[in-house]
């Protein structure tokens, strides 16, 4: 049995967890909530620095209650990127310190891939096309020949940030997505907004501005509804194309914006029409969480990948397609057909 302690802190959520092959043993989370406006990178990092030792201590206590001692931990995993630089550096420092003091390996993991792998772990999906939607990230990915390839992605800002930008202008507090979803439920009609799909990529920046502008001539409910309908349709379209292109038969939804019920419904309809299966993990594994970092760390450690301290610098623009996937063993027969 391999046991990993993982720490996540790329943005506003500081979360640490202990996992083994069969399940999450313990998890402790401490979330930074801005009083006004959005996430301030420095303030978020200061929050993480302030609570890091408390979170780790509480986590180890929780582990102890489940019969796990510090000596049972085989490695420390941390999110190396992508994310906000100051937050990443704070968490990386905590992770290095733990690894050095316990004299166990360190594993730097890609935050996007952690979302995917925890989804595959906690749902029946085995080789899905993934729609990964969060504050800063919006990507359509799938595994092919040693890497998670990005088939389509946002050309500017993530869908969550697009919602937040609009939400701040509409006077909502952070995060904007859940409020937009609530207002959208009481809409009376759709107002036209720019639908921007270029090849396999999409763009949200202009859409967010257009939605803000539309508040002058349409009701808040109608704008929220139209914003969601437009943005989600763009991403579902690219997800469908990736399905057709790769010939895969599963779709996995990952990331915090995946909590949106309308997005789920649209993906469900698309999959239904194509005869594909649609999977969503339970909510605690959708947003940023320590368990996913620990779990990807486990997969990497078991397949022989560790991160040496002098190579453990963070990377705020860490792309998922930069990672050599060492933990997926391809079926040789299946590869022959591709």
């Amino acid at each position: 049995m391999t046991t990993i302690l993982g720490i996540e802190g790329t943005a506003w959520n500081l979360s640490a967890a202990i996992v083994n092959e069969s399940d999450v043993v313990a998890e402790v989370t401490e979330t930074y909530r801005p009083l006004t406006g959005g996430i301030h990178p420095r303030e978020a990092a200061q929050h993480h620095a302030k609570y890091a030792s408390q979170v780790i201590r509480d986590l180890l206590d929780e582990g102890k209650q489940h019969g796990l001692g510090v000596g049972d931990i085989d490695a420390i995993a941390f999110s190396q990127g992508p994310g906000l630089g100051p937050c990443l550096r704070t968490v990386a420092t905590a992770a290095r310190m733990l690894a050095l003091s316990l004299n166990i390996p360190l594993v730097g993991v890609n935050h996007c891939i952690a979302h995917i792998e925890v989804g595959k772990w906690k749902t029946p999906a085995s080789d899905p096309v993934v729609l990964y939607v969060s504050g800063a990230n919006s990507q359509v990915l799938a595994y092919r020949m040693g890497k998670y390839r990005v088939f389509g992605e946002t050309l500017d800002i993530g869908i969550g940030n697009a919602f937040d930008k609009f939400a701040r202008n509409a006077g909502f507090s952070h995060p904007g997505g859940p409020k937009i979803e609530e207002y959208a439920k009481n809409a009376e009609g759709y107002i036209p907004l720019p639908y921007v799909v270029k090849g396999m990529d999409f763009s949200f920046s202009g859409l967010s501005t257009a939605a803000t502008d539309a508040l002058k001539r349409a009701s808040l409910q109608d704008v929220c509804y139209s914003f969601q309908e437009t943005a989600f349709a763009m991403m579902v379209e690219v997800t469908e194309r990736a399905l057709a292109h790769t010939g895969k038969s599963e779709v996995l939804l990952a990331g915090g914006v995946g909590a949106n019920m309308r997005l789920r419904e649209m993906l469900d309809i698309m999959c239904d029409d194509r005869g594909a299966s649609f999977y969503v993990p339970e909510k605690r594994f959708m947003g940023d969480n320590g368990a996913m970092i620990a779990y990807l760390g486990l997969l990497m450690l078991e397949s022989g990948t560790v991160t040496y301290i002098d190579r453990s610098h963070v990377n705020p623009n860490f792309r998922p397609d930069d990672v050599e996937v060492t933990w997926i063993v391809e079926d040789v027969g299946k590869r022959g057909i591709e």
Binding site: Y190, P192, Y195, E229, T230, A233, V236, E237, E240, R241, L243, A244, H245, E265, M266, L267, I269, M270, D273
Partner: peptide
């Protein structure tokens, strides 16, 4: 494909973009 069906009728190609149920009808 994911987007359209193409067929040949009376020596002419007909390409039709298929409706997507996940999208709002007017969109």
């Amino acid at each position: 494909g994911a987007e359209a069906t193409v067929y040949l009728k009376d020596g002419v190609i007909i390409k039709e973009r298929v409706p997507k149920r996940y999208r709002l009808v007017e969109l």
